[in-house]
């Protein structure tokens, strides 16, 4: 039988259909629109999914932007500092993707600056996807597994969570 060939073929087909590998270069990806200003966060109906939650490229992009926009200046590499730690399972403003998005877009009263308008919404979704990877909440196959700089913490692929 031609099992190895068939197995290879099946693997290639699976990979091709895998959301993990898709690279969205332009911003017009299907995804939820910005859910609205802070006052409405609590009322956003349902649980909007992050369009990039399963996309390894976008999560890695989020990681790059986390450094570029100096999030780690306040949140260290997710461990906190001037800002709250993002590595733990405690969320002051909720852990749904829209809450994380809103935290970044609108800022939060105790010193989290608003990035909305200064950063594209598309990039905020990427950042939000990465913020959840910091805590180990994206699949290990999707989480970034290499660093461009020294990092004390465990790689995101090895963090607790699902």
């Amino acid at each position: 039988m031609r099992c190895p060939e068939l197995a290879c073929l099946a693997l290639i087909v699976c990979l091709a259909g895998c959301e993990r590998e898709t690279r969205h270069f332009t911003a017009d990806v299907p995804g939820p629109a910005y859910p609205g200003p802070r006052a409405q966060t609590g009322t956003v109906a349902g649980r909007a999914e992050n369009p990039y939650a399963r996309n390894a490229y976008a999560v890695n992009e989020g990681k790059r932007l986390f450094r570029w926009y100096n999030c780690n200046g306040c949140h260290a590499e997710g461990g906190g500092g001037m800002g709250v730690p993002l590595m733990d399972a405690e969320w002051r403003y909720g852990d749904r993707p829209v809450d994380v998005f809103t935290s970044i877009h609108d800022g939060r009263p105790d010193g989290m600056p608003a990035f909305g308008g200064r950063v594209t919404d598309d990039q905020i979704w990427r950042l939000a996807a990465y913020v959840r990877a910091i805590e180990g909440r994206v699949a290990s196959a999707t989480a970034p597994n290499r660093d461009d700089s020294l990092q004390e913490a465990k790689p995101e692929t090895r963090r607790a969570g699902q």
């Binding site: 690279r23 270069f25 332009t26 017009d28 990039q123």
Partner: peptide, 16 residues
Amino acid sequence: SRPNALKPGVYMPDQA
């Protein structure tokens, strides 16, 4: 407005 149409994958975002 569309750097990714001219140099796909570039680290400058498309903006509306």
